[in-house]
């Protein structure tokens, strides 16, 4: 697994003891360049999941089942003032296209579907199955 060129350093500049800090600025939780959050695994994918906000009921099954921490979440308040997570997208740098999220999505017409990697999001949304065609 090749390291991106900009991360390749020489013996006199490598991390002491191979110890890696998670954060560059721990106070602000600013992730360091060593955080795998900054590594891209997108090229593992053949198909990608596409998220359809229109259909989503925010059950968060996809969030809890994704092994790659891909789901982008916004914290919102529900009617009773309790905080809850709203799914707002997928981090395609981290998604490996396993399809688990699609599998667990419970809406009658899935709010997540797999499409060939090079399908544009708009195009995918246009192709979304309807009630009679799911």
């Amino acid at each position: 697994m090749a390291t991106p060129k900009e991360m390749m350093s020489t013996w006199d500049k490598i991390q002491f003891g191979a110890i890696l800090p998670s954060f560059e600025n721990p106070e602000k939780k600013l992730k360091s360049k060593f955080n795998s959050f900054n590594y891209k695994v997108a090229d593992w994918r053949v198909e990608k999941p596409v998220f359809n906000r229109e259909l989503c009921i925010d059950c968060d099954f996809c969030w809890v089942s994704c092994p790659d921490s891909c789901f982008l979440v916004e914290e919102v308040e529900n009617k009773r003032g309790k905080k809850q997570a709203k799914i707002v997208g997928i981090n395609y740098d981290l998604c490996k296209g396993c399809g688990v999220c699609v599998d667990v999505c419970p809406t009658p017409i899935k709010s997540l579907l797999m499409f060939p990697e090079f399908t544009e999001i708009d195009e995918a949304l246009n192709q979304w199955p309807t009630k009679d065609n799911k």
């Binding site: 968060d60 809890v64 309790k82 809850q84």
Partner: peptide, 27 residues
């Protein structure tokens, strides 16, 4: 509580790891 609430937890285990696609370890 419920999952909607739990899902507000900021992840402390990040993606970009090299587990196989669909690996349960990550979950």
């Amino acid at each position: 509580g419920n999952l909607k609430e739990f899902a507000c937890t900021p992840d402390r285990f990040q993606g970009g790891h090299r587990l196989c696609p669909g690996c349960a370890h990550g979950m």
